[in-house]
Amino acid sequence: MLKKRIGSFGIILIIALIFIFLPFVYNNQSFLFNMMLYIALAEGLNIIYGFTGYLPFGYVGFFGAGAYSASLAILFLHFPPLLSIFIGGAGAFLVGIILMPLLKLSGAYFAIANLAASQALYYIVANPNLESITHGPYGISLASIYNPHASYYTMLAVLVLSMIIVLFIRTSNFGLSLLAIKEDHITASLAGVNVAKARAIAWGLSAFVAGLSGACFAWYVSVFYPGTVFSLNISVIVIVFALFGGIGTIAGPLVGALILYSFYNFIGISAPEYFQLLYGILIIVLVLFLPDGITSILQKRKIYVP
């Protein structure tokens, strides 16, 4: 267990160092920021999907809730940016608590209800009647605190936090209890696990990570619309990234986001018409031949994937 923890810490450290120093030699900072953002979101999704089996199609709802909670804290309460980022995480966590009853649903019902909830949130935020609070469809401007440098490194801190949470879950008794619930929740409850509580904790942590990420995004771009931060594309992309790498590990979502987002960035932007095609083929191949993600190649050979 200790060895595994040290190995995983090694990976987190390497990733942190890469993103600390890369901006000095590679000038496409927005690519690096988005990469960190997608890794963090894929890890956050991994907390709930990889360890409990709930597929949150509305995951972007937490992202948007984080972006808006942080922005409102900045605009109305004049909180400093870092505190506001935390408020973003807390706002998403609160939305998570409100949506807790969804965990009573199973499978596709959960996924659809969560999707609907995220869109409901979008319509609330974008509602012109709430213009005085959310600025409705006109979006948010945080130009007064615009700081790409500070927000970049804050995003890095959130990325590291998301990976540490997954590391903790993966190597703790709490994580074992989540896996037990995923296998058979009745057996888990008869092993003494409080199933509802364990699921709620995973759900809250997952929401918190998405909220922090959304808040960092808001700070980094500083101008955005409701449609930007509640876009269903974000849910889909993050789910695909996590599945591509393989869920239930730290490395899976990391590898998935690194490969697919690079792929998107280098081919998708220069040759979008080929990109869609290649992307589609890649996903079909994955589903057919590697349903558990690329890291499952190692796991099938009994190699431990951190």
Partner: peptide
């Protein structure tokens, strides 16, 4: 062993 461990940790 993990099956039993869950119960040993959470059961009592």
């Amino acid at each position: 062993e993990q099956n039993v461990k869950v119960a040993a940790v959470y059961g009592s």
